[in-house]
Design a protein around this nucleic acid. Structure first.
Lengths: 291, 291
DNA sequence: GTTCCGCATGAATCGATAG
DNA sequence: ACTATCGATTCATGCGGAA
């Protein structure tokens, strides 16, 4: 079956209205952060950020399949020496819209921006908020397993009986029971902390996230021929990865330069469609690191 | 000057009223999480957590010095497949009380316990919310510097031309400024992500945090003979560390067993007061790791 | 072909200065 | 007084050229 990549030059709030209900398996996006990227997106003020975003999330809720997932990459900026609360407010308001706030992943940025200030350290992390429409969303956990480091093996082997009992009681029912199962495993499930460097090289986009980020979530929440949507596609990282991984994708951006750039990439990618399906795995090698 | 450690068996909401205004330099605490540890604290329900905590934070705001800092270790639990929003709501309500939400540190729990659920991965991080009373709080950044990454070795052999240019770009100020800043530097400032293992030693407290956690914040926000407060002291980790680091400390807990345990530890520590001040550094060695 | 090494740059933030 | 602009600060990464 052929894999489609649809790209639109439009305000996503409007363009999304044209998509049918319950038609998208995964939304991965990184909207412009408040007051950032003024030159391209006009810079949304922190105090109007929530009202700016809610009409978009309302449409996203409509187009997402009941089994689908929405991953929102965002981080609040510092205003007047304080972290802004618009992300907190956004989570609360999106729940009122009907979203379920399932989880918050952490993107630990090892090579965060340098700088020194008297009252704070460098900001080395961003939020990856997972929202769902229902509790019965699809999750393919086996697709993102990571090699178990030696430290983990040794730690697990050295667990004492009392360790097991205490940790079991700490967390509740049936948590410590499965420990012995883990001792033989070569691979482990990851945690909700992702270690990835930011993309520094020139993508003609100041805020492109590393390919490993959408890749990880695409593996985790979709299978081949599913539909991936990025309503703020920017330089098109999400779409490119989705395309390589044989997922259909839809991208929207209001900036003509990004639209043209992504168009060009997609066209050249389609010329290479002779590549066998099995090949993509070699190119999309995971760099998510275990620490 | 003698270092004091005051321990109270009491509900902290009441006991805090007896402390004078503007008398504490640092508050580090990990309150009972919502609906967990029912046996010991009676289990606060997630939907009443905010109203339960606000009277406490109101008193904390009163007793904290204007230059002081409040570090709150907290993580929302999963209720009905969703992350609860009480931490979000708490941040918003505490700001209404007059707190400044300065920063959110991430405690990345390196060796978090294995486990498997169908719809989520292991939770490997917790929030460390930094609140302040004013923007002019004290922060001793040099106390928590970490070794630089390996890249520095090669980089510092020869400074690049652009580095010199960028350093010299300031108009009219001293020629060459501080190239030596780089040459002498073996340490870098940390970020707002802390990599610490979870506590494994046998504390009789169900949610003891590792000593490195309060230690890091005590180094960062206080100096010797300052006052550290933990209104939910539990097994007394914060107090023990403060004591060793020659900070005065105040601990409160409503559970008699914890009170007795901490009392005993403090007494035996005081018997060792003959130890020279210079010695404590050897015992309180940092384990905060660089990744 | 590897490995090594130099180099630009990035969703930043603060404080001072200017309008 | 309140907002807008600007300079200074700083570290890990990936790329490309060189050995």
């Amino acid at each position: 079956m052929e894999i489609r990549t649809d790209v639109y030059l439009s305000d996503c709030k409007e363009q999304l209205r044209l998509l049918p209900d319950d038609s998208v398996d995964l939304i991965v996006t990184s909207p412009p952060y408040a007051d950032q990227r003024k030159d391209t997106y006009g810079g949304i003020k922190p105090d109007t950020y929530v009202e700016w975003f809610l009409p978009v999330s309302e449409q996203l809720l409509r187009v997402l399949k009941p089994t689908g997932t929405f991953v929102l990459n965002i981080k609040e900026k510092v205003v007047n020496g304080e972290r802004s609360t618009y992300v907190m407010e956004l989570i609360i308001e999106m729940r009122k819209q009907g979203w379920l706030w399932t989880e918050e992943f952490i993107w630990h940025k090892k090579n965060c921006f340098p700088g020194k200030w008297p009252n704070r350290f460098r900001d080395a992390w961003e939020r990856l908020l997972q929202f769902n429409k229902t509790k019965k969303f699809k999750m393919y956990q086996n697709e993102v397993m990571v090699p178990m480091g030696d430290w983990a093996k040794s730690r697990l082997k050295s667990l004492s009986a009392t360790d097991k009992i205490r940790d079991n009681s700490r967390v509740g029912s049936g948590f410590g029971k499965n420990i012995s199962n883990w001792l033989d495993r070569e691979k482990a499930f990851p945690t909700n902390v992702l270690h990835l460097p930011t993309e520094c090289s020139n993508k003609n986009h100041s805020a492109a996230f590393p390919e490993e980020l959408p890749e990880w979530f695409i593996k985790l929440f979709t299978k081949e021929e599913d539909v991936v949507l990025d309503p703020f596609m920017g330089s098109g990282t999400t779409l490119n990865v989705a395309n390589r991984m044989r997922r259909n994708s839809i991208g929207i951006d209001v900036v003509p330069e990004y639209y043209e750039m992504v168009k060009k990439q997609i066209n050249s990618a389609e010329l290479c469609l002779c590549e066998s399906r099995a090949e993509y795995g070699k190119k999309v090698k995971s760099k998510v690191q275990r620490v």
